[in-house]
Amino acid sequence: MTPDEPLIDFDWVARNLDEIARRLGEHLVMTGIAVVVGFLISFALALAIRRSRRLYGPILAVSGVLYTIPSLALFALLIPITGLSLLSAEIALVSYTVLILVRNIVAGLESVPADVTEAAIGMGFTPLERLRRIELPLAVPVIVAGLRIATVTTVGLVTVTSLIGQGGLGYFIVVVGIRDFFPTPIYIGAGLSIVLALAADVALLGIQRALTPWARASGAA
């Protein structure tokens, strides 16, 4: 790397378009798996918390401690057990989404006004119907807000999994860029990962708008 070298070597980009597309896809899939699995686990935990409020404290405490552990340390602790594998990466990524998602799903379900719930009970809704037709739709904005944070965070963390042989776009930052002192792949990897985070954020916002037409009609965001 010399000072007079151009900031981005476009020849390298042109030669590696296939690899860039492949790593971008891998990044997207790794993020998707983590957020979907994290959401399913968090949803189950949130329903359990709704049944028994006593569970909330312990679940928040455990996920909070997991959340505080630096990602490289969490990946490292999993290596001797599940190896330098996608599974190790996903276990850590999923565990990071749980704190954000559980908090928001619980808050979302609790945000339903008591009168609305009472009206639903009065109309003869069973608890399951109430959840599916009243509480979940009304909780969508808060739940999606959690999903957006979890997704943006996960996109950033996937780059770190390049240190355990995974990594999507992080591969360009660590393996090609930093090890060979070659800036172009670093800018490509970091730049695309930021673009991916923002695109996912906008897409989720779009899904939220589509799922809550009444919010648009009343002019609220």
Partner: peptide, 19 residues
Amino acid sequence: GRALPSLGILGIILPLTLP
């Protein structure tokens, strides 16, 4: 700040401080 991958920031700054 949330969208910036920390590893990416490290990598981006590295070429700039090499001189």
